[in-house]
Design a protein around this nucleic acid. Structure first.
Lengths: 189, 189
DNA sequence: GTTACGATTGACCGACAGGTTAGCGAGGAC
DNA sequence: GTCCTCGCTAACCTGTCGGTCAATCGTAAC
């Protein structure tokens, strides 16, 4: 996992994997038919932390708090798993047809997250908590774009702290009209 | 260029390059000392279209129009050069220390774009054209995040048209309070 | 104690990688 | 005509790649 994640598929040789794992190369080929098979196994293992049960975390929170928690969760996850996120991003960008299965899973995750957002925003608007003019779908899409933008800025601009709280504050302001004392915009920039 | 851009560094062999170029492999090694040297030459060639002179395009437009043009330009470029953008993104994500020179150049481009945005927003605010509350830096940062978010959605979600006009409309609304008839949010979502 | 079987190994294979080298052929200088 | 250089190539070199295979080890069943 470490080798594949740090150096990618083509730059990692089975001999290296065997050496680092302190087993013979032949043993790996006994457990996994091909290098690709091992790689997709690694992909799936690396993908596991991405599947979390948000329902249990939601609990008795109201929609506004749930949305904020969802956003905060997204950004904290990216912050804490930056290298993994970077790896998957690079993998999907590069071998888009080699890793079709991965693409599929990630897209499922992503659309799951989006639909949660859409539903939450819709309910919030119904309750009058949310004063944004767009449709829930458009608002969620816009929100996701912003989150992804923050994500890639974090990955590329080296010394970027990625402060989830500040971002959540901005989102709150935009979505709920909540004013907050701190300078919300600065962190995103 | 085609081989490296489509398949990446490690998946492209010098023999293939030679075959596609209808020359001998040795000739390539006569012109370029190593495979890496050829690759960075290719990178620089592929990067050329990214350097454009925006000043000439700005002309006599006011700040509001310039900002809109800048945003529209960014998105149109991404739309028209999607595969190139994808390649560079993947390259920078993957070999972040191998392609340090590339990283540097791209970052320079990026910060140049950002500072143009910052300055334009600052001037627009001075003239009272822009009613956004944030500092110009924060506004530009937020805007760039949104643009990057749209970019990666376009790259990953397959059938995503990336309509620059709709995005520009959204930006206008956010930045200048311009209302427009079309449903702006839909395209971004 | 023998058998059976899954786990494990070192030695090995053909293919191909990046890179080198000896030399060929055309053309300008003299 | 001879020489020299430049652009170019076929053939080759060495190392490593993904993958195979016959043989061995450990252990549980009988």
């Amino acid at each position: 996992m470490r080798l594949f994640a740090n150096r990618g598929f083509h730059e990692t040789s089975m001999s290296e994997v065997a050496r680092e794992a302190h087993v013979s190369k032949a043993l790996i080929f006994w457990h996994f038919k091909t290098k690709e098979e091992l790689f997709v196994a690694v992909l799936n293992r690396l993908l596991e932390p991405y599947f979390i049960d948000f329902a249990e975390e939601a609990g008795v929170l109201d929609e506004r708090a749930q949305i904020k928690k969802l956003v905060e969760f997204y950004l904290s996850f990216v912050r804490d798993n930056a290298s993994s996120v970077r790896f998957f991003l690079a993998q999907m960008l590069h071998d888009q047809h080699f890793s079709e299965g991965l693409n599929e899973q990630v897209l499922k995750l992503y659309s799951g997250y989006r639909s949660m957002l859409v539903e939450l925003i819709a309910r919030a608007r119904q309750k009058g908590l949310c004063n944004v003019r767009f449709s829930p779908e458009a608002a969620a899409g816009f929100l996701l774009s912003a989150l992804n933008g923050i994500l890639i800025e974090h990955l590329f601009v080296a010394n970027n702290p990625l402060d989830p709280d500040a971002a959540v504050a901005m989102v709150s302001e935009w979505l709920f009209g909540e004013e907050n004392s701190s300078d919300g915009g600065k962190a995103v920039a």
